[in-house]
Design a protein around this nucleic acid. Structure first.
Lengths: 263, 263
DNA sequence: AATACGCTTTGATCTGCATCAATGGCCGCT
DNA sequence: AGCGGCCATTGATGCAGATCAAAGCGTATT
């Protein structure tokens, strides 16, 4: 089913001025065919071949680029596109009528955005670039029509959505039942796993989101995030300086992730 | 793996003593065609007609019944069926390796279960009947194949999953950012809305789940649930006795649902 | 280079809710 | 009818983490 590429073109030619800020996963991509894109197997890890792939390519608008802080879409916007992240990172969030915000996810290369808009025809959340980010936009309607012709595409999209539901369930578990330390440990490990799946270092990476964002996502205060990160550092589990993290003792970190015996 | 009994012996059907417990939404249904089922429009509110509907009916196993406490499926079980609830209610939950449990949802008539299993081929959560509950089971594989023939079916399933993602996002918001009072107020209002959508009273209903379950779901302690319900009652927002609730002041309750000015 | 703003860190204090504890009521079972 | 277990309620206590406050730094702006 899922076969991952071993050779990844990490060495993207940044043409001219492509690295203005501390780059974590940013990759500047030329508008190449999907089959040549380093991340397409992550976007839609489907068993498409030959003609099917060409059809898929026909509905993809390649290489939109967003800078830090720019919106990809907002709640209520008409649902036009599914976004596939090629490089960079994005946060998605929902908010209460009175203005409180909950970040629902951080998304990196190879992930899809906008799926929850399918039901209502409008985006329900906001998506904002955390750093310079490039995406492929896929016309929702065309994709939909195309999916009707290509069963495996339909199937893969369902699988992706199903996976999203599963991850959301896990986040709920995190938010509902775990202590702040556990949440943070899990958070770091989760990032680590996702980076690993993309052939990036699982032990050294940059956080493209602020402490405040992390806290919001995990349902804890910004200050608590700082304190606990410091605590982890003092305990020799990680080394962290500003946005750069090194996971030093994975095993211990995992142990922290499941500490309390509780209910 | 183990192929589950496709033909459930219904010896445990209430038959004579049909209302042993306070029944909220339970409806004893005869195995009628989907188009005649009172809830099918909720299960798959799709634009199927004539022949299409007949095809759908062909993959539906009707009227499995579960008693309070019985499992529909467990994490790790092979993904064989999508479940559509006809009457009764079900809770779904996930758990950490060390045994902590998070309830991820309460499900009533017209809702689908098992969608998150699509990605991995195994159920990721546990589903347990809260009261006597009857469901339709749909062979996942057959449904999948059928969906490839009927675009609107495929589309509807995607919409349903998309809606699930959206609701999950809202629950995250609830778990991450709101006080215990707000959570409980929202919880009651959410139930109310769902009942209303099914033409049941939005202001009078029975809770099929315990205080402990509610607390778990909302990420607060059982005792806190009790205290706050009592508080609501004293404030004249609701009347509650054992499992029966009356929402008295909807407007006030909604106000509580968005009290704090916070972040 | 100087200024300013946003992010991060650390300390002090406060509080909402968990936890512990105990009692009573309802329900199903024998 | 009576027993036993589960569920619900209420009180007392403690603590994790929120909130308030303030200072240090790194980066973007002029």
């Amino acid at each position: 089913m899922t076969r991952l590429r071993t050779q990844e073109s990490m060495k993207d030619v940044p043409g001219s001025k492509v690295t203005p800020l501390p780059v974590s996963l940013h990759q500047a991509c030329e508008p190449v065919a999907c089959r040549q894109c380093g991340v397409y197997r992550l976007c839609l890890p489907l068993g498409l071949h030959g003609g099917d792939m060409t059809l898929l390519e026909s509905v993809v608008k390649r290489k939109e680029t967003y800078k830090r802080g720019q919106l990809l879409f907002s709640p209520g916007d008409r649902f036009d596109f599914i976004y596939a992240i090629r490089g960079g990172s994005v946060k998605t969030s929902v908010c209460t009528p009175d203005g409180r915000v909950q970040i629902t996810g951080f998304h990196i290369a190879g992930e899809l955005l906008g799926l929850s808009a399918l039901a209502s025809g409008k985006y329900s959340s906001e998506a904002r670039a955390l750093e310079t980010t490039s995406v492929c936009r896929v016309e929702a309607e065309q994709l939909d029509q195309l999916a009707q012709k290509i069963p495996s595409l339909q199937y893969q999209m369902m699988k992706i959505m199903s996976g999203q539901i599963r991850r959301d369930e896990e986040l709920m578990l995190l938010l509902g039942r775990r202590s702040a330390e556990e949440r943070l440990a899990e958070y770091l490990l989760g990032l680590s796993r996702r980076f690993a799946a993309r052939k990036f270092s699982p032990t050294q990476f940059n956080l493209s989101m602020s402490r405040g964002d992390i806290g919001n996502y995990l349902g804890i205060a910004e200050e608590t995030v700082c304190r606990i990160l410091t605590r982890f550092q003092n305990a020799g589990l990680i080394a962290i300086e500003r946005r750069h993290v090194s996971l030093i003792d994975l095993a211990q970190l995992e142990a922290v992730g499941r500490m309390k015996p509780a209910a």
